[in-house]
């Protein structure tokens, strides 16, 4: 119970801070919308090939926009040495990590909810064809991105080139998660239900989330304290 309370306290603090400053949110949302717009110029929205890669385009946008949110996650703790106060408090590392991951998750989902209808308009796809399955894929893949990104945000927080290092480290780790999300999102955007081989991608996404959440919870104390 205490663990859960501390996790939610950290998450609420991060969300309150971000909603006050809107630093990451504004940067991430405007970046996502600009990329969506640019991709719509690069690919013909009426072409079948564009629809075939729609899931890939969408998740590239989410992954790039997500990096801007994840970069700020631990970096905001550097101002005034707040990270030291958090680490020195009796909050367990896993609670601190989960709180931050949860805040990133909510922010990332917020960006996705805004971008999805815009994507539907620009690329001429019906995003609400399979709403429940699509929501499930967004929830699972976004959690994967948040967990891996938050862990690497902690790992790179003291690096001078952290804005560069974070995406360089995170994207290779996210390949299985993003591949599964792309493979699942494309047929869902075409209104097809998930069945057959696609369920294997879903299992992979769930497995990715479980494995990386467990790994992050085990490793976070070492990452934070050394």
């Amino acid at each position: 119970m205490r663990f859960l309370r501390q996790t939610l306290t950290v998450a609420a603090k991060d969300l309150r801070s971000e909603l006050r400053t809107k630093e990451a949110l504004n940067a991430s949302l405007s970046f996502a919308l600009v990329i969506l717009l640019l991709f719509s110029f690069a690919f013909d929205p009426t072409a079948d090939t564009t629809r075939e890669i729609s899931g890939g385009l969408l998740w590239l946008v989410f992954a790039f926009a997500g990096a801007l949110i994840l970069n700020r996650s631990f970096a905001r703790e550097l101002e005034n040495d707040c990270l030291d106060a958090l680490i020195a408090s009796p909050v367990p590392g896993p609670a601190l990590f989960l709180g931050k991951a949860l805040a990133n998750y909510v922010l990332l989902l917020g960006i996705e909810v805004v971008c999805l209808p815009v994507f539907g308009v620009f690329y001429n796809v019906h995003v609400a064809g399979q709403p429940l399955w699509l929501a499930l894929v967004l929830l699972l893949a976004s959690w994967g991105v948040s967990v891996v990104g938050t862990l690497f945000s902690a790992l790179t927080v003291n690096l001078r080139l952290r804005e560069l290092m974070l995406p360089m480290l995170v994207y290779p780790m996210l390949i299985p998660c993003l591949m599964a999300a792309m493979q699942l999102t494309t047929p869902l955007l075409a209104g097809q239900p998930l069945q057959g081989d696609l369920l294997a991608w879903m299992r992979m996404l769930i497995g990715f989330d479980i494995i990386f959440t467990s790994l992050a919870l085990v490793l976070i104390d070492t990452v934070l304290i050394g």
Binding site: K13, S17, R20, E79, C82, D84, A85, A88
Partner: peptide
Amino acid sequence: IIGHGIAIYDEL
């Protein structure tokens, strides 16, 4: 602990 930084959040 009181360290070099004030460990207080400016935006709160």
